[in-house]
């Protein structure tokens, strides 16, 4: 009998939302358990087995010296390493510290900051170890996650497009909120969410990070023409994917 590939799911600095997307695959969980051996998934099971693992899904960013070491060990134990979510691929919302002094944040958040050991920055997994595939989103889309796992099992390339949200939006038949007067990050953001927010008549928040050829400067110019203040343009780019280079640079080009 063919041994099943061993799956591990890891958490770094994150909210657990992307791991929950995996648990949210209710209809598919049994087939997943049939196709792989879930060897390590602390969020779901206390049975934690040692490596090596065939596929590691990594959630979260690196914000402590301990985690910077731990990700190296995960990499050593994993044949394939796939990051899941905005934290693991771009540093997450916690990468806002990268634009400020982390000690100022600590003083505001914690009553006794002296017990906190943290790095000055929040960085994506790929800044520390080689990553085989990055799945975007805040949180990830469970359909895309299943596609990545199924592709891994079949030894094929996952069908995860890198074009703009606009293509998904138009396929859905949504009206373009931007053309109707609502600033939207969709034209510079990677598809994957199914154009969730424009489908609810809201502008895109950029949860899936920069698309393949993001012309953020032109989009920002258009937002500005629509009356959006410089500070708000900066904040729109500096959110869940603030440390993704295209969004980082565009945000920095606008005064706070």
């Amino acid at each position: 009998m063919r041994t099943k590939p061993r799956l591990a799911v890891w958490k770094f600095a994150s909210c657990d939302g992307c791991q929950l997307s995996l648990l949210d695959c209710e209809d598919e969980l049994l087939s997943l358990a049939g196709a792989v051996e879930i060897a390590y998934f602390a969020e779901a099971s206390s049975a934690m087995e040692d490596g090596p693992y065939d596929l590691s899904l990594v959630e979260g960013s690196v914000t402590t010296a301990h985690d910077a070491e731990r990700i190296r060990e995960v990499r050593r134990q994993s044949k394939l390493l796939v990051t899941i979510g905005a934290c693991a691929t771009a540093g997450g919302i916690q990468a806002l510290r990268n634009f400020a002094d982390v000690n100022d944040y600590l003083a505001v958040v914690y009553a006794s900051p002296r017990y906190i050991e943290t790095l000055a920055t929040s960085t994506p997994i790929a800044a520390h170890v080689p990553v085989d595939f990055e799945l975007r989103g805040c949180p990830i889309n469970k359909v895309q996650l299943l596609e990545v796992i199924a592709a891994f099992l079949a030894g094929r390339k996952p069908a995860i497009p890198t074009y703009s949200v606009c293509i998904e939006c138009k396929r859905r038949g949504n009206l373009c909120v931007m053309v109707q007067g609502t600033p939207c990050l969709g034209p510079v953001t990677q598809a994957g969410c199914g154009a969730l927010c424009p489908g609810c008549r809201r502008g895109c928040y950029g949860c899936y990070g920069p698309m393949e050829t993001p012309d953020t400067a032109m989009l920002a110019r258009q937002w500005s023409a629509m009356g959006v203040a410089s500070r708000d343009i900066r904040r729109a780019f500096h959110s869940f994917n603030a440390w993704a280079p295209a969004f980082r640079e565009e945000g920095e080009a606008h005064d706070d």
Partner: peptide, 11 residues
């Protein structure tokens, strides 16, 4: 310079 390559025109 102005084109976003967002593909709306083709859609």
């Amino acid at each position: 310079e102005r084109c976003l390559a967002c593909a709306n025109c083709t859609m």
